[in-house]
Amino acid sequence: MPDLLDTVNHRRSHSKVTGQAPSHAELLPLVAVAARVADHGALRPWRLIELRGDARRRLGEAMVEAAGLNGAEAARLAAKPLRAELLIAVVASRRESDTVAVWEQDAVAAGVAHMLSLLLAAQGWGVMWRSGALARTQPVNETHGLAASEELLGWLYVGGIPADAKPGVRSPIDPTDFLSALEETVTERITI
């Protein structure tokens, strides 16, 4: 377990990556492992979409359309999906269920994305999860072919780690600030 703790402890987001990217075949076993996240009802309410090559340009065009930009601002926005050779769209693909709430299904999709980002990092890839208001727009959703029951949670930008990448700096936490025990005594309820 120390290797796992060390890997996760040193994970960082890479806003800049090189032009290298894992192949589809290299992604498949990582996705299979990421699918092991807790999933109430085993609904698998998620899917992933690879964007490579021209698909990234089409995403940029959809973002420009959604933002209603033109000129230099449009060109800057259109170039954003080109910052990595591989984008992995993370889609919450909600299922009909009487027992599993929508928020819980979205949490599973987010869990898969985070697990995949950890697995990619452990394999030596640079990863950055990007989202934003444009992910929820009609032109972007149409570009991804989303169904009415689906919502785009963002993209994992994946590539090689540049040789000059600096280690991530994140302030450590005091875990006692975030982990507590339920009080053993029952407190009195105030009734109205």
Score class of each variant (00 low, 15 high):
Pro2His: 10
Leu5Glu: 11
Thr7Lys: 03
Val8Pro: 08
His10Asp: 12
Arg11Ile: 08
Val17Gln: 12
Gly19Ser: 14
Gly19Thr: 12
Ala21Trp: 08
His24Arg: 15
Glu26Gln: 15
Leu28Glu: 12
Pro29His: 06
Val31Cys: 05
Ala35Leu: 03
Leu43Glu: 02
Leu43His: 04
Pro45Gly: 09
Trp46Lys: 03
Leu48Gly: 05
Leu48Ala: 07
Ile49Pro: 00
Arg56Val: 08
Glu61Trp: 02
Val64Ala: 04
Gly68Ala: 12
Ala72Ile: 05
Ala75Asn: 10
Arg76Glu: 06
Arg76Asn: 09
Arg76His: 06
Ala79Asp: 12
Lys80Ser: 07
Leu82Asp: 04
Ala84Val: 06
Leu87Gly: 00
Ile88Met: 00
Val90Arg: 00
Val91Ile: 15
Ser93Glu: 01
Asp98Thr: 11
Thr99Trp: 09
Thr99Gly: 02
Thr99Val: 11
Trp103Thr: 00
Glu104Asn: 01
Asp106Glu: 13
Ala107Leu: 07
Val108Phe: 02
Ala109Asp: 02
Leu116Glu: 06
Ser117Gly: 14
Leu120Pro: 11
Ser131Asn: 13
Leu134Thr: 07
Ala135Met: 15
Thr137Lys: 04
Gln138Glu: 15
Val140Tyr: 03
Val140His: 03
Thr143Gly: 05
Thr143Cys: 15
Leu146Ser: 11
Glu150Gln: 09
Leu153Cys: 04
Gly154Met: 09
Val158Trp: 01
Ile161Trp: 06
Asp164Val: 10
Gly168Met: 14
Gly168Trp: 14
Ser171Glu: 15
Ser171Ile: 05
Ile173Glu: 12
Asp174Arg: 13
Asp177Leu: 14
Ser180Leu: 10
Ser180Ala: 15
Ala181Cys: 06
Leu182Val: 12
Glu183Asp: 14
Thr185Lys: 12
Glu188Leu: 07
Ile190Leu: 10
